[in-house]
Amino acid sequence: MAGTFTFHVVSPEGNVLKEEIEFVILPGVNGELGILPNHAPLIAALDTGVIRYTIEGKKKNLAISGGFVEVSENKATVLADTAESGELIDLQRAQAAKERAEKRLAQRSPDIDIKRAEFALHRAIARINAADRKND
Score class of each variant (00 low, 15 high):
residue 7 F to M: 08
residue 71 V to D: 09
residue 36 L to T: 08
residue 54 T to M: 08
residue 88 L to F: 11
residue 71 V to H: 12
residue 63 A to E: 04
residue 40 A to S: 12
residue 60 K to R: 15
residue 107 Q to T: 02
residue 37 P to Y: 03
residue 53 Y to P: 05
residue 113 D to A: 12
residue 62 L to H: 05
residue 87 E to P: 06
residue 46 L to F: 03
residue 47 D to F: 07
residue 54 T to D: 09
residue 24 V to Q: 12
residue 98 K to Q: 15
residue 100 R to K: 15
residue 12 P to Y: 03
residue 128 I to N: 11
residue 5 F to N: 05
residue 12 P to R: 04
residue 133 R to H: 11
residue 46 L to D: 08
residue 35 I to T: 01
residue 118 E to P: 15
residue 46 L to S: 09
residue 19 E to Y: 08
residue 115 K to C: 11
residue 60 K to T: 03
residue 6 T to V: 11
residue 23 F to W: 15
residue 99 E to Y: 02
residue 118 E to S: 12
residue 89 I to D: 02
residue 121 L to T: 06
residue 26 L to D: 04
residue 9 V to P: 12
residue 57 G to S: 11
residue 50 V to M: 05
residue 108 R to M: 00
residue 91 L to T: 11
residue 30 N to D: 14
residue 98 K to N: 06
residue 19 E to I: 06
residue 84 E to C: 07
residue 24 V to K: 07
residue 123 R to S: 05
residue 108 R to E: 14
residue 86 G to N: 03
residue 108 R to V: 00
residue 131 A to R: 07
residue 108 R to D: 12
residue 56 E to T: 06
residue 100 R to L: 12
residue 13 E to M: 14
residue 35 I to H: 06
residue 27 P to Q: 02
residue 94 A to T: 07
residue 17 L to W: 13
residue 64 I to T: 09
residue 58 K to D: 07
residue 1 M to D: 13
residue 46 L to V: 10
residue 121 L to W: 10
residue 50 V to L: 08
residue 21 I to W: 10
residue 78 V to N: 00
residue 96 A to V: 07
residue 77 T to F: 07
residue 108 R to F: 04
residue 43 I to L: 14
residue 107 Q to P: 02
residue 121 L to S: 01
